[in-house]
Design a protein around this nucleic acid. Structure first.
Lengths: 340, 340
DNA sequence: GAGTAAAATGACAGCGTTGTCATTATGATG
DNA sequence: CATCATAATGACAACGCTGTCATTTTACTC
């Protein structure tokens, strides 16, 4: 049988309420009392009973992660990061896969939050980029944190930013540094901010080097292997084909690599290819892909901790809780697919 | 404010205990009383408070999913299936990623089950195939269900079987039916039962057709793209190369396909390739891969429901609860990579 | 229709925590 | 050193449910 707050209180020689104050960091406990209680907690290996906490308290210690993203690696990395932070703070996580294209998605989410009595929500793209979803959460007073693509927060609500723009600029810059002049770009779904941000970074890098982008070299597609295969065929058929390609993610890049090989085009000798995401795809090709690595798990962890802090701040009625938008810049990883 | 058991009881004109009996299916309630209560539940949209249930009851309504598997698609599919069944039965799910090679893994798991007060565990490979892990669970009286590769249950403890043997036999049979005589096999990690079962099916199919397996055509590797690329080079360098390949999973098959193309070998004209798993890899290649589809989400759902049933049976002290081992046979999916 | 066993229902405590409010200790002030 | 404000602590009810055991109702027997 595991220790209860009562046994800890007896062991430490204080009331259960004081123990409660310690485990909730309420701050109104004398240092030596606190030390005694901490020691009792450690000695008895006490862990608060979540069910009792939820039942007695006003709030619940459960966060929700809502996702709709076909990319399994991304979701799992997010999930791992969130879980880590939740565990560290005694929160639990409710996982809720959903379909963002479902017209009833908003009702579904509100319903879920209410019936599971969630304390807050972690939203990743594309959900985190849907204004009506965010609006509904605000209306219902549901707390959330978003993971977003961008280089500055779109509003003052909590979010963690991934600076795809900057990273895309770096990747493109890397290709330019290698002497490439005709660089192609294959985009993913335009609904994802990540696509538009990466494209913006691509254009900016060209502009930095005084190069005019050739519209023929920019192709719209989806974040898929198939897009890569098809697009590269189209690009290679051009009278003046590109000597380098920046694909919006590794999956597209892998497809392009495959397509190029099928047509007998050597990579990187005749065509340099860079991807984005540092997914397993990027090392499972020959040659391995140059890419940008976003520390997804770490981003998720930061988002979660930010949500928890704002939850606790609200609990203590600290209205002056300042929301700081964390920002991550994916890091350039150079591999053989772009080496000269 | 949502309805409580008390408001339902008042509405229905019975005691709260009777409502409790209804929601727990205890069976000792008169039909018309039951109807009244049901109606009250519907009218008030009552949902039992999980925290109160957990606190008051002996058991918790929380299951755990423990995984260590590099394959993100598999895990996510499992997770989705488990979640679906949990939700349908009012259970919650605790997700616990872990490292099976960690020497302290057993302590870690036992600790987790105790501190989170889990009702039961869902184990997938490789954890479900580690005898010492299972032994520890049995010793501690922790209930679990395993998802296993095999065509019959190894013991009388609850499990759901995936008949890789049968499916591998079918895939190999399909290649044989296409007239192939020299069929290669690339294995994954030998620690995974799925590998040995698939290999067993491969040999059996050859034997069925009176063909002697050529050891030169069987290569050990890992479940990775790289294994596929390397192995196919080795196979194609043989004096008498194979005309068909059965790769232990789609990732290997995709690597092999890539490697074959690199060497100018046409697929399927000069070399037929089949994979296994029906992962996204299998449709992201040109040509798309023949493979076997295991309904992972459905398997997970079945496993979860089996665990829940056995949990409830134990609660009612029904010792005569018979454990039926469900068995799934992955289904052959023929695509262009093996068409004549 | 009285007597009995079995089925159905209810009263009430208790699960482990937090919130509210009362009480006690501490420190500052004159 | 008495007085008071404030910080620290404690007593106790309440959260919504289940388990135990007592009570009532029902069904059956002679």
């Amino acid at each position: 049988m595991s220790a209860t707050i009562k046994s800890v209180a007896e062991y430490a020689g204080v009331s259960i309420k004081t123990v409660s104050r310690v485990i909730n960091n309420e701050g109104t406990v004398k240092p030596d009392t606190l030390a005694k209680v901490q020691q009792a907690i450690d000695a008895l290996d006490y862990r608060p009973n979540k069910a009792a906490r939820d039942l007695a308290g006003r709030d619940n210690y459960v966060l929700g992660y809502v996702y709709d993203n076909p990319n399994a690696y991304y979701i799992l990395a997010m999930q791992n990061g969130i879980l880590k932070e939740c565990r560290a703070n005694g929160y639990e996580l409710l996982i809720h896969p959903c379909d963002a294209t479902n017209p009833d998605i908003i009702d579904e989410l509100v319903n879920m939050v209410n019936s599971a009595r969630l304390a807050g929500l972690i939203l990743s793209p594309p959900l985190s980029e849907m204004p009506d979803v965010l609006q509904a959460m605000d209306d219902k007073g549901i707390q959330y944190v978003r993971v977003l693509s961008g280089d500055k927060a779109p509003d003052d609500k909590p979010c963690v930013l991934v600076d795809d723009y900057q990273a895309a600029r770096q990747i493109t810059g890397h290709l330019l540094d290698q002497g490439h002049q005709r660089i192609a770009f294959i985009a993913g779904e335009k609904q994802h901010h990540s696509t538009t941000e990466r494209q913006r970074g691509f254009y900016q890098a060209l502009a930095d080097h005084g190069i005019q982008a050739d519209p023929e070299l920019v192709i719209d597609g989806t974040y898929s292997f198939g897009t890569g295969v098809q697009s590269i065929q189209q690009l290679l058929a051009l009278p003046e084909p590109p000597t380098a390609l920046f694909a919006c993610n590794d999956e597209i890049a892998a497809g392009a690599l495959f397509g190029a090989r099928m047509q007998g085009v050597d990579v990187p000798e005749a065509l340099a290819i860079a991807g984005f995401e540092n997914s397993p795809f990027s090392t499972q090709t020959f040659p391995p892909l140059t890419t940008a690595s976003q520390p997804t798990a770490q981003i998720a962890q930061r988002a979660t901790s930010s949500l928890i802090r704002s939850l606790q701040a609200r609990k203590r009625k600290a209205e002056n809780h300042t929301i700081t938008a964390d920002i991550f810049v994916p890091e350039l990883i150079v591999r053989e697919s772009t080496s000269r």
